[in-house]
Design a binder for these strands. Structure first.
Length: 136
RNA sequence: UUGACGGUCCAGAGAGCCGCCUUUAGCUUAACCGCUUUAGGAGGAACUUCCGGACUCCGCAGGGAAAUGCGCCUUGCGAAAGCAAGGGACACGCGGGAUAAAAUCCGCGCGUACGGAAAGUGCCACAGAAAACAAACCGCCUUCGGGCAAGGGUGAAAAGGUGCGGUAAGAGCGCACCGCGCACAAGGUAACGCGUGCGGCAAGGCAAACCCCGCAUGGAGCAAGGCCAAAUAUGUCCAUACGUGUCCCGCGUCAGAGGCAGAGUAGGCCGCUUAGAGUAAUGGCUCUCCCGGCUGUACAAACAGCUGACAGAAUCUGGGGUAUGGGCCGUCAAACAC
RNA sequence: GGGCGGGUGGCGGAAUGGCAGACGCGCACGGCUCAGGACCGUGUGGACGAAAGUCCUUAAGGGUUCAACUCCCUUUCCGCCCA
């Protein structure tokens, strides 16, 4: 598959998955976001992502736009994140996620803070060889 | 030109790259997955859930009652809800005429959830003598037995109004005009009602209080409802093992590796859609053009920069209500110019 | 998606259509005490005002009524239920 695709199998969609990740996973906040993450069950190499958007964030148009921007930011940077992990993002306010650039900045910033970006060391090193990290 | 109102239309366009959902065909696979490919992919309000209808399940012999909703008339559209046009009545405003001043009258505009208050019940706080049975605080008159309801004040509302006569004082007690009621009734499909006669005046308001009259309505909702169906528990069948026995059949017991059953949880499918249900797709970036707005350089033209209304389908569908950017047409008003 | 319920001082919560804010908590002041708590008493929606007082106020807007927190309609916010 292409490097930037984002099919259904990369998304969390079962209620039990959400419940287990939020209850027993790790949690970190920052950049107007909350992130829960948890190592995936056995045999899964890919990353999976879920989004939780509260009604307090705004009406349906605002909520849908925030989800699309976060999903796009995740899609473009998926191969830079730690694989074999399930992620759940939940935005806390829509102002800090108003544009695609802001959403990407917030998502990457929070993942770096959580230590879920193994490619960071490679980027800071000689050359950013993403394929190495992806193969792990 | 601006504003208000009414009507009507649109909801930026075209490319490129990366993606998403459904789908056609092919390759691959045990199957899923995956790859290539075909076609399609938000709205006028998708919002609200205020009324309808389809559809599904439940209930139901028939009749009545209850409960709920609606309520001027005619016509048209519609399955219904509802919408439109015209008319009537009432309320308010403006203008005209009349007048000492009003009301009544005429015209125009605007609005109305607009059947019934002489079927019954209830309520009308405070104030006030009295709030619907009429009564009498101050008062007026008096032959001191009583008579009166004009004046006072209260109140949202005080049991017709104004004037003249009348009287002890008064009073529709009498008269004129107005108002009110009843009957008849030109006219009108009807709501209504020109008008005529009668009645001295009874019958205050509230039905978005109970209610009466007329009309309509069974209840719940796609999370409706239907189908398949792990695990576990239950029931049952059968083989094996053990006991009885020399052995087999048979009988009994333990344990469930297995089969079946009905119910049914997790889960899945249908319902479901030429957009379609699953953490729920319809997106991100770049360029060009168009439209509107703001800012700057500017008299203007032109150029540059910034910005893009309300809002996201969830079974389908008809209305009502609300939010909101712009184009065009019409009517009215104001200002400016001629 | 569908079906319901509610919104009243700083907070919890009352209020037949008739003086809005009962009652409790909190807060302020005073009393009691050496002091604090507890207890007792008074006050306590907002604006203007020296005060007297005037005006506004039951989520918002409109309607019915002499009179609306209450009845009716529209909008908005909050909450609950249905697999």
């Amino acid at each position: 598959m292409t490097a930037q695709g984002f099919p259904r199998s990369r998304r969390l969609h079962l209620k039990n998955d959400f419940k287990s990740i939020i209850q027993s996973g790790h949690k970190i906040q920052g950049f107007g976001l909350v992130l829960w993450w948890k190592p995936a069950p056995l045999g899964q190499e890919d990353v999976r992502v879920g989004l939780v958007v509260s009604r307090k964030l705004g009406n349906a148009v605002v909520r849908n736009r925030v989800k699309r921007l976060l999903r796009e930011a995740f899609r473009l940077n998926r191969k830079r994140l730690q694989s074999g992990v399930d992620y759940i993002f939940s935005p806390r306010n829509s102002d800090s996620l108003a544009t695609a650039d802001a959403a990407e900045y917030a998502l990457l910033g929070l993942c770096r803070k959580a230590g879920l970006m193994p490619s960071l060391s490679a980027e800071q090193g000689l050359c950013g060889d993403d394929e190495n990290n992806f193969a792990e």
